[in-house]
Nucleic acid binder design. Structure first.
Lengths: 341, 341
DNA sequence: AGAAATAATCTAAACGTTTAGATATCCAGC
DNA sequence: GCTGGATATCTAAACGTTTAGATTATTTCT
């Protein structure tokens, strides 16, 4: 593949001149410039980003680690991030940790070797050891998205998950429900924990206690939610509504309801958190609280680029300066929750 | 960030020795090796992939261009590809062309600048000009996935889409339907065109002609399918079944059916192509033909790596040697298609 | 003990850029 | 015809690796 030397030779100038001409980083006479561009065309030159990165000491790559890219939420988030990054001339290396913290740390190593300019990660681990590994990851600025890890001094962009849990639960309470089940994700993951807290807060405001028998845990996946929902539905005093801590778990619950011969929302109401892109196509149309995914993605990239360009203080320098950008969810009432008559 | 020189200094050896020790590419005495590894630990060294790539003249990056990453099919495909690539030590740069061919060519340029080792692309353009731009993309081996572009001498991995269209249509015919509508994607895109051909073949085998009034075009998106399905359902001699050329368009059709007060499958049957990860959670459970996505992703990476390692002939050298790996779909009969009584 | 063979380590160049600083070219003003 | 100041171009070093080939240390054999 042609390099800058070939262009220089073809145009009869030095490589320095080619570089300045192509990057517009200094004065080049009209006619040499033209000769150079012609030469570029003639030899089929495309600059070598690798060499440039080495010389400049920085790449135009952003690493993104999500826990489950087939989840529509992460799909949409990936899209938003990719879009925002490209607008700034950055490409995105997408990695899937599959909810596995060891795998995630491996991926971070990989990104470190690639010398990405910055890293966006939806963390899937927990515990002190894990937090330290995350914090130790030097080299590139790293900010967490979607899931907040307690005590980690890094910037964070995500949703107010307590508000999300509260909003959806309050809505269901307003419909007259009192026995409301909760299907959470993995304990220790902020999205799940905070949504659960919100659920409890809403119950408390209504003078209710969460019933442990109605508070279940799955692992964010549809199949698991399906499995845990079945005994729930087999109870004699089964709940009249189910809140699922994410979108695909709501689908799992919905499936269990159908398979056990119940109807939603007539027999039991279901609500999820995180909207689906095509949620209006489902029957019943799922009632959820939606995240402003596009904005979250944009904000994450924006924040990361501030660190990359050095505008923001490095968190290891000023640990207390770690910032958060928390977005508010919006309730979307559709058909899957009915008023209790 | 620490470099190989720091390690060498710390261990009291030359950088050449560090390199050979770390890569195991030559003999290093037991005790220097230990000193070197200790030094790596001490200075916190991670090799600079950029410098290595420059020296070696090749990267460990694969570029992936999909047309719509939020489509669950592409989400799952991305996952499979990412998995297979990581297993071989490659990272994946994911790009979203948004069904826009100009954007796609830009992205290919970007990947070219990054000097990716190879490129997988689900092409979204058509026409001679487009095909030539794709073919001209030199530098890295490129193979097309999912969508085949006619006349392009590149390897291809994807589904037998004619078989898919045929299978699903034959199934519906077997259920007794005769007025079967087809909602396609963009004309000129092989997945849509071939599925349509399969639909026609199945009709022909049953002695039927495709009715132009029942053959509609959308653009692979749910909303558009919803829009075009509405007039279809308003017809007095409306079809008794709808085949959608992909999964999300099937959902769009389903939504239109619901919104117009019909029931699926009692009033009208619907079938899609491409399965959903959580399709069993939908009501009615969608009847589809499914692709072996995992295998397709694996095969694509495998094929690409053969080109990268030089085992496979470069298509520009032996244009006639362009290979195809075509997978067969499997019919999954669920609840969204009912027998016509 | 000395030569020969082997094992371990080193020096230096190369990959393709960018850029600081040197040099050459041009023109205006005297 | 010079000087001085732009303006345009060039030379050479640097980024952090890998690796061919040279050199040195160690062992083995006679």
């Amino acid at each position: 593949m042609a390099n800058i030397r070939d262009v220089a030779k073809h145009a009869g100038v030095s490589i320095a001149t080619v570089s300045t001409a192509l990057n517009g980083t200094g004065p080049v006479s009209e006619k040499t410039a033209r000769r150079i561009w012609d030469a570029v065309e003639a030899v089929g030159y495309a600059p070598n980003g690798i060499a440039r990165s080495l010389r400049l000491g920085k790449t135009k790559l952003i690493g993104l680690v999500v826990s489950e890219i087939t989840n529509p939420f992460f799909g949409a988030l990936t899209l938003a991030i990719e879009k925002a990054a490209h607008a700034q001339g950055y490409a995105v290396i997408v990695c899937n940790s599959n909810e596995d913290d060891a795998r995630e740390l491996e991926l971070l190593d990989l990104l470190r070797v690639q010398r990405v300019a910055g890293i966006l990660v939806a963390p899937s681990g927990q515990g002190d050891k894990y937090r330290d590994s995350l914090a130790r990851n030097a080299g590139a600025p790293l900010i967490t998205i979607d899931r907040h890890v307690e005590g980690l001094k890094r910037d964070f962009v995500g949703l107010d998950n307590r508000a999300a849990g509260r909003m959806i639960t309050e809505y269901i309470l307003r419909l007259g429900h009192r026995r409301i089940a909760f299907i959470g994700g993995r304990t220790g993951v902020s999205t799940s924990d905070h949504r659960y807290e919100g659920y409890c807060q809403a119950l408390a405001s209504a003078g209710l206690q969460p019933d442990p028998a109605l508070c279940l845990r799955a692992d964010f996946r549809s199949e698991t939610a399906y499995t845990v929902a079945q005994p729930l539905l087999a109870m004699t005093d089964r709940p009249t509504a189910i809140v699922a801590a994410n979108n695909v778990m709501a689908l799992g619950a919905l499936q269990a309801i159908g398979d056990l011969g119940f109807r939603c929302p007539q027999d039991i109401s279901v609500a999820g958190i995180d909207d689906f892109p095509w949620s209006t196509a489902l029957r019943p149309r799922l009632t959820t609280v939606a995240q402003p995914i596009e904005e979250i993605g944009r904000a994450a990239v924006e924040m990361l680029l501030e660190h990359i360009s050095g505008e923001a203080a490095a968190p290891e320098a000023a640990p207390e300066a770690a910032r958060s950008r928390i977005f508010l969810p919006t309730l979307i009432a559709r058909d899957s929750c009915a008023a209790l008559t």
